[in-house]
Amino acid sequence: MIVAFTRFDIINFATTQVRRVLLPLLFVIAFGLAVPGGGVPVLVGATVAVVSVSYLFQADERGLLDTLYATTSVSRRDVVIGRYLTIIFYAIVAAALGVVISLVGDAIDHHSFGWPVLATALLGAFVVIAVGVSAQLPIYFALGFTKARPLMFIPILLVGGVGVVVIQFGVLKRIGGDIVSWTMNNPAIDAIGLVVGIALLMLSASIAVARYARREL
């Protein structure tokens, strides 16, 4: 029932929180056009997706939807995995949008940052998603939106803050080139990064499944 739940979840998110779905995506577009910088919009896309996680859980709480899910044929485990898939799906959409906007930005500027930059950005996006999702979901599933939210404030601010600082002060511009060549010349590191990211997500999911299974709904 994982697929059935993910489909429900995505449609629910898209139809009841239209603004919260679209505004971040618009932000990616706006950012990409305003601040051309190679693959940065991809990272922005990943970041906004990670920040949007809370909206899904907030909606669950408002409608007592966790209780609803518990009375369907969807097991608690399938709800958790389905939710992970929903967010990863949204993140992919946002990152893909970032890729498109990067390419458009490139074309407008008559620059060509090239695939290495984009590839590095995608890897970076994957890291952001893996870390951001792995960190948040077990807490939301264990505690529910209201109790988890105060705990979220700090890491989100941190990540967002770091992101803003990095971009504002052109840190990426300076060390960006170095990062790109580093990732491009070390495919082994890239592969390890992917594996670690995936392992992180899986570990996170198993914790979330365990915590959610014990929660009173």
């Binding site: 629910n12 408002r62 007592l64 044929s73």
Partner: peptide, 15 residues
């Protein structure tokens, strides 16, 4: 679970 029809005293549906 789906052989049980549930009616609780608060609605489980998004507003």
């Amino acid at each position: 679970q789906d052989r049980i029809g549930v009616v609780l005293d608060r609605t489980t549906a998004a507003p």
